[in-house]
C-alpha cells in the first residue's frame, strides 16, 4: 500500500511517515502542490494525505486538478477548521477531513475507512459488524434478528454502511436517498437519522453527527 503525503511542514511529513510506515504503508512525500500532483501521476498512490495550506497553490485546487483524472481516496489534513473550508474540500472531492492537531489513532482509522470504501461497491451483502444488509430484498438484520426498516430508512442506512467509518456529507446523503432536488432539505435527514439511531440503539454501531458537515457510521 502506498501513501502520498503532500504537506509543506517537514516535521509533519517525517512524523506521518513514521506513523504510516509502522502500519505497513510505503510512504512518499511532496512539499508543494505541483510536486504532489507530479508524484500522484507517477506513483499512483493508494491514498493521499493532503494539506490545504501549501506554499504554491491552495490544497483545494490541488484536489480539483487531481479529481480530473483520479478517484484515489484523499484525506485532508489541515489547521483550518471552519465549516465552510471543510465543505469546499468535500465539494472538491475530498473523502474525509482531519483537523490539525489530530490524534494519530484517529487519523489511521480514517485512512483505513476511506480505503475500505473502494472495495465494497459490488459486494452482494453489505456488512458492518453485527449489521447485514441485503441489497436485493432491501432487508436488514442486526445480530441475526431482522431489523424493521422503511424503504427510506433502508436507503439511508445502506448509504452509511457503504461508506462505513467515513463521513458522508449532508448533500451526498440527501441526493442519494431523496434525489437531487432535496439537497437543501436537511430536516428529512435529521428525522430519519434519528429513527435509525433508535433502531440501532444497544448495538455496537453508532451514527455520529459532524456539525454542519454530515454523518459517519462507526462501529465502537
Amino acid at each position: 500500500m502506498t501513501a502520498l503525503i503532500i504537506d509543506d511542514e517537514i516535521q509533519i511529513r517525517r512524523l506521518l511517515r513514521m506513523a504510516l510506515e509502522s502500519k505497513g504503508y510505503t510512504v512518499r512525500d511532496a512539499e508543494n502542490g505541483q510536486m504532489g500532483l507530479q508524484e500522484a501521476v507517477f506513483l499512483k498512490p493508494d491514498v493521499i494525505l493532503l494539506d490545504l495550506g501549501l506554499p504554491d497553490m491552495d490544497g483545494v485546487d490541488v484536489l480539483k486538478r487531481l479529481r480530473e483524472w483520479s478517484s484515489v481516496p484523499v484525506l485532508i489534513l489541515s489547521v483550518r477548521d471552519q465549516e465552510s473550508v471543510k465543505l469546499a474540500a468535500f465539494d472538491a472531492g475530498a473523502d474525509d477531513y482531519v483537523s490539525k492537531p489530530f490524534s494519530t489513532a484517529e487519523l489511521l482509522a480514517r485512512l483505513a475507512a476511506i480505503q475500505r470504501r473502494q472495495g465494497t461497491h459490488d459486494a452482494a451483502n453489505l456488512q458492518l459488524g453485527p449489521l447485514v444488509l441485503d441489497p436485493v430484498h432491501h432487508e436488514a438484520s442486526l445480530n441475526g434478528h431482522a431489523l424493521k426498516l422503511t424503504p427510506t430508512e433502508y436507503a439511508l442506512l445502506a448509504q452509511l454502511v457503504r461508506h462505513a467509518g467515513k463521513i458522508v456529507t449532508l448533500k451526498q446523503l440527501l441526493r442519494a436517498v431523496w434525489g437531487p432536488q432535496a439537497e437543501e432539505q436537511s430536516q428529512y435527514l435529521r428525522v430519519y437519522a434519528n429513527h435509525l439511531r433508535k433502531k440501532l440503539e444497544g448495538s455496537t454501531l453508532e451514527i455520529k453527527n459532524e456539525p454542519g458537515i454530515g454523518y459517519r457510521l462507526e462501529e465502537t
Binding site: E9, I12, A19, K100, A105
Partner: peptide
Amino acid sequence: IAIIRTALDG
C-alpha cells in the same frame, strides 16, 4: 502544537 501532539502519540 500539531507536531508535538503527533510526536507524543508516537
